[in-house]
Amino acid sequence: MQTYSYYSLGVALLVAMGACSSGSRDTELPGGDTIIPVRVQPLTATDTAGAVVATGTFTTDDETALSFRNGGIIQQLRVREGESFRKGQLLAAVEATEINTALQQAKLGLEKSERDYRRAQQLYADSVATLEQLENAKTAFDAARQDVERVSYQINHTAITAPFDGYVLQRPANIGQVVGPGTPVLVVASRGKGGWLLNVGVSDRQWSAIRVGDAATVTTDALPGKDLRAEVARKSEGVDPLSGMFNIYLKLADAPVSSLASGLFGRATIHLAKASGVWFIPYEALMDGDGGKAYVFVTYDGQTARRVAVKVSDIQQDRAVVTAGLEDGGSLIVSGSPYLRDGSPIIIK
């Protein structure tokens, strides 16, 4: 109660000082509400154009990891990193002794089941075998035939042939290495089709500000002193679980193919498209900030304070960047806010 008395006395003194200076303004409304003295500033939206600086690694638009369907011991690797290849060329193969043995066994099983089926047909025609025995022999014969087809399919995937004309970006495996199904053996790209990309990670706030088509400038230690032109080609629609960031893919317009390699480090400056409706306000005007949300007090008539929710995109030293909530204009209350509530009567100092 004592603290409240000091506060009331202080406010009363301020109001009294304001009344003395203005001479014609009341310090208390008929209902008993105290008029709070405040300072204001006009609200003016500012057109801004910013930039996002991010780092990442180079890749290609059609980078493909080639692997074996069933795995095994690598027997052949016919290309090295940086080498070119033609469509249909044999690139790698695994040791196929085990799968060839399985195929021979499947073929022997097929021959036996075929003989059994023919014998069952003859016996059934002579009324020696039952219909059930004939049907069982037919089922065994069909299953053996499917088994041969399955193993033959697996044999066709013991080798990797080039799906297009291209070159080798990486060769993460070596001859004699045991690889599992789907393990990358070669990382390749087509020649002269996809072009180079820089894959950079950005925060969620930066991701929302970047638009496809935004221009960018890329630099890399592989090309010292050279700025590469690029633009935003696409944005990821989800967060990368490994980095916890969103991926932005920058398409390079004039990168020399022979001077770059997949995995090289690069730095990008993304030039954001011009955006309007941004307000720079004093940091002290913000109330009850929580993440990107806060409240401010504004006045539209110079006599009443209104509490307005705003969206804050950035804090810059002694000012805040507001991107939404102040579209209705008015004047921002920059002092006296802690004593206000929505609808409080005010007097402008």
Rank of each mutant, 00 (worst) to 15 (best):
177 Q>H: 07
183 T>C: 03
176 G>W: 02
205 R>V: 13
196 W>E: 03
187 V>E: 11
195 G>N: 06
182 G>F: 09
185 V>M: 08
177 Q>K: 07
196 W>Q: 05
185 V>D: 02
200 V>I: 10
193 K>H: 13
215 A>F: 13
174 N>E: 10
213 G>N: 02
195 G>I: 07
182 G>H: 08
181 P>R: 11
211 R>W: 10
197 L>P: 00
209 A>M: 12
192 G>I: 06
204 D>A: 13
192 G>Q: 09
210 I>P: 01
179 V>N: 00
201 G>Y: 10
202 V>C: 03
211 R>C: 07
211 R>K: 14
175 I>R: 13
209 A>T: 10
184 P>R: 07
196 W>R: 01
178 V>Q: 15
216 A>S: 07
198 L>G: 08
201 G>N: 06
202 V>Q: 02
201 G>V: 01
181 P>H: 04
179 V>H: 06
194 G>C: 06
214 D>Y: 11
211 R>N: 14
188 V>Y: 02
187 V>W: 00
190 S>T: 11
187 V>I: 13
208 S>M: 13
193 K>P: 03
189 A>V: 04
201 G>C: 05
215 A>N: 09
200 V>L: 01
212 V>E: 11
210 I>Y: 08
193 K>R: 11
179 V>T: 12
216 A>E: 02
173 A>V: 07
206 Q>S: 14
199 N>L: 15
174 N>H: 13
180 G>I: 06
190 S>G: 12
185 V>Y: 01
197 L>S: 02
215 A>W: 09
174 N>C: 12
181 P>F: 09
213 G>Q: 06
187 V>R: 08
185 V>K: 02
185 V>F: 05
207 W>S: 09
203 S>D: 12
198 L>T: 10
199 N>D: 15
206 Q>D: 14
212 V>F: 11
184 P>S: 07
178 V>Y: 10
186 L>N: 04
197 L>H: 01
217 T>D: 12
179 V>K: 07
214 D>F: 07
192 G>P: 00
216 A>V: 08
189 A>T: 02
182 G>Q: 09
215 A>R: 14
176 G>Y: 10
185 V>L: 07
179 V>G: 02
199 N>A: 11
202 V>K: 00
189 A>W: 01
173 A>D: 05
201 G>R: 01
215 A>Q: 13
191 R>P: 03
213 G>P: 06
209 A>R: 11
184 P>Q: 06
195 G>V: 01
208 S>T: 15
217 T>L: 13
214 D>R: 09
204 D>T: 14
193 K>N: 11
173 A>S: 10
202 V>H: 00
181 P>L: 03
216 A>M: 03
208 S>V: 14
208 S>G: 12
209 A>G: 02
196 W>D: 04
186 L>H: 08
190 S>A: 12
208 S>E: 12
193 K>S: 11
217 T>A: 14
199 N>M: 10
208 S>N: 14
208 S>R: 13
187 V>N: 01
189 A>Q: 01
211 R>T: 15
216 A>P: 03
204 D>V: 15
182 G>E: 05
176 G>H: 09
211 R>Y: 14
207 W>I: 08
202 V>A: 05
197 L>W: 12
207 W>N: 03
205 R>Q: 15
184 P>H: 00
176 G>M: 11
190 S>N: 04
173 A>N: 05
194 G>E: 03
